[in-house]
Design a protein around this nucleic acid. Sequence first.
DNA 1: TAAGACTTGTCAGAATTTGACTAAAAGTAC
DNA 2: GTACTTTTAGTCAAATTCTGACAAGTCTTA
Lengths: 91, 91
Amino acid sequence: MFVGKRIKELREEKGMVQRQLAAALEIDSPMYSKIERGERRAKREQVIELARIFEIDVDELLTLWLAGQIYEIIKDEKVAKATLSFVEMKL
Amino acid sequence: MFVGKRIKELREEKGMVQRQLAAALEIDSPMYSKIERGERRAKREQVIELARIFEIDVDELLTLWLAGQIYEIIKDEKVAKATLSFVEMKL
DNA sequence: TAAGACTTGTCAGAATTTGACTAAAAGTAC
DNA sequence: GTACTTTTAGTCAAATTCTGACAAGTCTTA
């Protein structure tokens, strides 16, 4: 989701096509396309590999990847903000 | 997890035993025990029902329930706080 | 010991996720 | 327009995870 949008930006900046990144991740292009669009979730290892390929800080991409997962859980919740505050307190 | 700890407190305050709550949720006692200890995840409907039984604000319990799910995702992540900040910004 | 409360472990069926495949759609160049 | 590449959409079986139930265990109290 968030990570999908970001890797699409990065891919286009680098002038690459989906097929190339799919090959690097050893998945097929349709699958990579779905990851970019947030239809499928990337694996942690794939996120790390993508950061390596795009030469950006892996933490940036991992943050987006995790954020997408969390967002999916609370996006429609009335108590979303309270939940985040609670978790932050517990960290 | 968080919700498990809380419903245990509430149950003991009310002087109830697990068997009674298991019956109310139409699950067996071992299952309820696991929910309390965070070994199994309660369903949303069960959380709502528990709030009703204990006569507390359903939002309180839902917050703890959601928080547990989120905590599981980011608890060991170096970027945990950054992730929460990002999600909060996106809400 | 007996009885009740709670926990642990296992297991099959259900539900979800995964990766691959096909083919359609969209975009590009000729 | 056609031919070609890229991207997206849809389907499917295999793999994985989740679920609920059961049996048997521990622990406490009477």
